Amino acid sequence: MASVNMADVKRLRELTAAGMMDCKKALEESEGDFDKAVDILRLKGAKDVGKREARTASNGLVAVKHEGDSLAALLELNCETDFVAKNERFQELAADIVAHIVATKPADVPTLLESELNGKTVKELLDEANAALGEKIEIRRFALLEGGFITSYMHKTDPQLPPAVGVLVQLDTPNAEIAKDIAQHAAAMAPKYLSPAEVPAEVVEKERSLFEQMTREEGKPEAAIPKIVDGRVNGWYKDFTLLEQAFVKDNKKTIAKVADEAGVKVLAFTRYKVGQA
Score class of each variant (00 low, 15 high):
M1L: 10
S3V: 13
V4N: 06
M6V: 13
V9L: 04
V9E: 04
V9N: 05
R11N: 14
R11I: 10
R13L: 09
L15W: 06
L15H: 11
A18L: 14
A18Q: 13
A18F: 13
A26W: 06
E28P: 02
E31I: 03
G32V: 02
F34S: 02
K36D: 07
A37Y: 03
L41R: 04
L43G: 14
K44C: 08
K44D: 11
G45I: 06
G45W: 04
R55K: 14
A57I: 06
S58H: 12
N59Q: 15
V62C: 00
A63P: 01
V64Q: 09
K65E: 15
E67W: 10
S70D: 15
S70G: 07
A72Y: 09
L74S: 05
L74V: 10
E76C: 08
N78K: 09
T81C: 11
V84P: 08
V84F: 08
A85Y: 06
K86Q: 15
K86V: 11
K86P: 11
K86R: 15
K86M: 11
N87I: 01
E88L: 06
R89I: 10
Q91M: 09
Q91E: 07
E92K: 14
L93C: 12
A94K: 07
A94V: 08
A95C: 06
I97V: 15
K105G: 06
P106A: 01
P106S: 00
V109G: 00
V109L: 00
P110V: 02
L112I: 00
S115G: 01
E116H: 02
E116K: 02
G119E: 03
L126N: 08
E128D: 12
N130G: 13
A131L: 01
L133K: 04
L133C: 05
E135Q: 05
I137F: 05
F142Q: 00
A143V: 10
G148H: 01
I150G: 04
Y153N: 13
Y153I: 10
H155L: 14
H155N: 11
K156P: 09
D158S: 15
P159Y: 10
Q160M: 14
P162R: 03
A164P: 08
V165L: 11
G166M: 01
V167T: 03
L171E: 03
D172I: 02
T173G: 03
P174V: 12
N175V: 08
A176T: 09
K180S: 11
A183T: 09
A183V: 09
Q184R: 14
Q184G: 13
A188I: 05
A190S: 15
K192L: 15
S195P: 05
S195H: 01
P196A: 01
A197C: 01
E198R: 01
A201S: 12
A201P: 04
V204L: 11
E205C: 00
K206H: 11
R208Q: 10
S209L: 13
F211Q: 15
T215Y: 09
E217D: 15
P221N: 04
P221H: 09
A224G: 02
V229Y: 07
D230I: 01
G231N: 05
G235R: 12
Y237C: 02
Y237T: 03
Y237D: 02
D239I: 07
L242G: 03
L242N: 03
E244A: 10
A246V: 03
V248G: 06
K253V: 01
I255T: 00
A256P: 00
K257A: 14
E261N: 08
A262Q: 05
A262Y: 04
A262S: 05
V264L: 07
V264H: 07
V264C: 08
A268V: 04
T270S: 13
R271L: 02
A277F: 10
